[in-house]
């Protein structure tokens, strides 16, 4: 009986140790790898530091899209209050349009341009990324039924 109890205790201790290690790994992983969502107003308020990856969301400003050399595209993201210049070298999603919602992943460079590494595809025309809706609501440029 004694040995059985001992074994159980050792077993429980081992499981606890494994659990702690896994929890530590998860917490560390989350700390290192979460990306915040920011609106152009947040960027203007200097809430993001240069070189730190984040997700930028808003509307593609009308008349701002310029195709550069190669596959390079420059455009502006706006939430109605502030505007952030963005630069993306890659294939834009099929539904990328001026005046439509967009979410891009990337970081600010030293000149204050957002260097996008990925521009997220929307799955259909009606869909507006919820983060963008929130950003527009915050800047007061969101009308219900939009």
């Amino acid at each position: 009986m004694k040995t059985k109890q001992k074994r159980r205790l050792a077993f429980a201790a081992a499981l606890l140790a494994v659990g702690c290690v896994v929890a530590a790994v998860i917490v560390y992983g989350l700390g290192q790898n979460t990306m915040y969502f920011r609106s152009p107003s947040d960027v203007a308020a200097r809430q993001v530091s240069e070189g730190v990856a984040f997700r930028l969301g808003g509307l593609v400003e009308k008349g701002s899209v310029q195709h550069g050399a190669g596959a390079d595209t420059r455009f502006s993201v706006t939430d109605g209050k502030s505007v952030v210049r963005a630069d993306f070298n890659g294939v834009l999603p099929a539904l990328f349009r001026e005046g439509q919602g967009v979410v891009a992943t990337g970081a600010m460079d030293s000149s204050g341009t957002f260097i996008a590494s990925e521009v997220l595809a929307k799955h259909d025309e009606k869909y507006m990324p919820p983060e963008v809706v929130q950003a527009l609501k915050k800047s007061g440029r969101w009308q219900e039924g939009q």
């Binding site: 790994v25 992983g29 790898n33 990306m35 915040y36 969502f37």
Partner: peptide, 26 residues
């Protein structure tokens, strides 16, 4: 990794995303 962003959003409205690097690490 899947539920943390949802929970955080529900608690204080912070929008975050957890990407592939998290899964590569854990």
């Amino acid at each position: 990794g899947t539920l943390y962003p949802l929970v955080l959003d529900a608690i204080n409205g912070t929008k975050i995303s957890v990407g592939p690097p998290y899964y590569a690490l854990t």
